[in-house]
């Protein structure tokens, strides 16, 4: 396979548009990942509660919007670092959709596959909560339970987030 296109047909191309109405690039605060000042026991408790409350939840990952894992309670052999990165990717898509459509901040996104779910919830401007569930999970219950947990996590993280970055 050569990279050269020999067929002579010109494929339609989308010309790059300068972004309009996009916020100016922001300089981000230091990553929350690996911050020793975080109240890890309380965070772990909040994550454990979600897993106990809803049958079928395999585990939760608290990650930064930068894609770095803060903490997790995954019980399967899925790498939580990968999940934190996936959560940030989902957040990126949600954020762009929000900006393009003028729908505001990212809140939640759920991916359903044949054998399970991945739900990502916004915790704060800096953190995300990713929840992995079996295909038998009661998603409506997850959507009822996760936002209050995310709020509690936000309060726990708030204490160590510089004031200027609070939402």
């Amino acid at each position: 396979m050569s990279g050269q296109d020999n067929t002579g047909t010109i494929l339609p191309r989308r010309t790059a548009r300068p972004p309009e109405g996009m916020p100016p690039p922001r300089s981000l605060p230091p990553s929350l990942a690996g911050n020793p000042a975080l109240p890890y026991p309380q965070i772990g408790q909040a994550l454990a509660e979600l897993r106990l409350e809803i049958p079928g939840v395999h585990g939760c990952v608290l990650g930064g919007v930068d894609g770095l894992m803060i903490t997790h309670n995954m019980q399967t052999d899925v790498d939580p670092n990968d999940l934190a990165a996936l959560a940030a990717t989902t957040y990126g898509l949600g954020r762009q959709v929000g900006l393009r459509l003028g729908q505001g901040d990212f809140q939640q996104s759920t991916v359903r596959n044949a054998l399970g779910y991945l739900s990502v919830y916004a915790v704060s401007a800096q953190a995300l909560l990713a929840v992995v569930g079996a295909d038998t999970i009661n998603v409506a219950r997850l959507h009822l339970h996760a936002p209050p947990v995310a709020e509690r996590l936000a309060a726990l993280l708030d204490g160590v987030t510089p004031t200027s970055w609070r939402r």
């Binding site: 049958p55 038998t136 009661n138 998603v139 409506a140 219950r141 009822l144």
Partner: peptide
């Protein structure tokens, strides 16, 4: 399968039918 509601009618201020639906999904299952 998901616990989500396709439609609701009635309900009162205190009774959130979407919460009732999610909970009763577990009963049915």
């Amino acid at each position: 399968n998901s616990g989500m509601t396709l439609g609701v009618a009635g309900g009162t201020g205190e009774i959130d039918l979407t919460v009732a639906a999610a909970g009763n999904t577990d009963v049915v299952r």
